[in-house]
Every structure is written in C-alpha cells, then in structure tokens.
C-alpha cells in the first residue's frame, strides 16, 4: 500500500492572516477541528515570511511535505506525506492555482474568491477525490467546474423525482413512528 498511489493529504486556501478561506482534508490524520486549525496555523506561521509569489515554494513541516504559492492576500497549500514525490504535489498545486486564476479571470484575491466561493469548492472537488489526484490540467478543471458541455438540455422525468420524494416521505413517516 505504502508505495502505491500518490496521495494528497489536504488542500488549503488561507488568507493573509492564516484564516480559512476554503480547505479540504482527505485523510484522518487530523481528526478534530482543533488539530486541523493547529496544523493550518503552524504551516501558515512557518511559511508566512517566505516569498512564494513567482515560483511555488516547498518545505517539510511537522513531518509533511507542503508545497505552497501565494498571490495577493491568498495562500495556496498542498500537503503530502513525507515520502511523496515533491513534483507531483507541485503539479497539483499548480493545477489548483491556475484553475482558480482561470475561473476568476485573473482577479485572484480574497474578496473575489469569497464572492465565488462555490467555484473554489468545486475546483478542489475536481482536482482531488478522496486523496487521489483526479485532474491536474487547469483548463480541464475549470471546464468541469463550469459544467461546460453539460448545457445540452437533459429531459428529467418528473416521475423519478416524485417517486424519490414519495420514498422520502414514507421513510420519514416510518422513522417518526418508530
């Protein structure tokens, strides 16, 4: 197992004070909210003063490899295990970074990100699935987030939905009666 697939431990987007903008953890090494926040705080403190604006930077912190890149008041991080291939992590980071730039039309700052937070969440969801790298090409990620190509009208059978709702109602009733 250990020498199999590259795994991403987490993807973090923090602001210039180290506060969460959007984060996603893919493993249970940080079981509680407190441990997650402590990790973010420690990573932020250790990278805050570095200049990761032109090239992605990297470091080993708390036993993890962290690659990171900053733009405006945003800090992008991707974390992997201590034996992970650094360049794979860097590729994921670059994909995330570029996809966000594409989706926000190069207006990457905290305000714009917060105003389009749905896109950011979807973006992370399209890059990593349960720790496994799903896609690293920024164009493809952005297209999938925007559901480009899905506009062709798809007829939805009302029946299925109402069936589903009926099941739901029935189920609710049953659980209430229990």
């Amino acid at each position: 197992m250990e020498h199999s697939c590259p795994l991403i431990k987490n993807v973090l987007l923090l602001d210039s004070e180290g506060k969460r903008v959007a984060v996603k953890y893919f493993c249970d090494e940080w079981p509680s909210l407190a441990s997650k926040l402590a990790f973010e705080k420690s990573i932020f403190a250790k990278t805050q003063r570095t200049n990761a604006r032109t090239e992605a930077e990297i470091g080993m912190f708390d036993g993890y490899i962290v690659v990171y890149k900053f733009i405006a008041d945003l800090h992008f991080y991707v974390t992997g295990g201590d034996d992970e291939n650094e360049l794979i992590l860097a590729t994921v980071l670059q994909g995330f970074f570029d996809a966000v730039s594409l989706l926000l039309r190069n207006n990457v700052d905290k305000r714009t990100v917060l105003e389009n937070l749905d896109l950011i969440f979807l973006c992370i969801d399209e890059i990593v699935d349960g720790g496994i790298i799903l896609e690293t090409e920024a164009n493809v990620i952005a297209a999938k987030v925007a559901m480009r190509g899905a506009d062709a009208d798809v007829p939805l059978s009302e029946q299925t939905i109402s069936q589903a709702l009926a099941t739901a109602r029935e189920h609710l009733a049953r659980s209430l009666l229990k």
Partner: peptide, 19 residues
C-alpha cells in the same frame, strides 16, 4: 441514501457526460 439513489442512477445513465 436510498432517497437519492434513483435520481443519481438516472444521472448515471444520462447523455450528459458530466452528469
């Protein structure tokens, strides 16, 4: 889960790739 199963299975057979 059963409540969404049928909706999702329908999407799984949708013509739209992303669905």
């Amino acid at each position: 889960v059963i409540i969404v199963t049928s909706s999702l299975m329908k999407d799984m057979n949708s013509k739209t790739d992303l669905y």
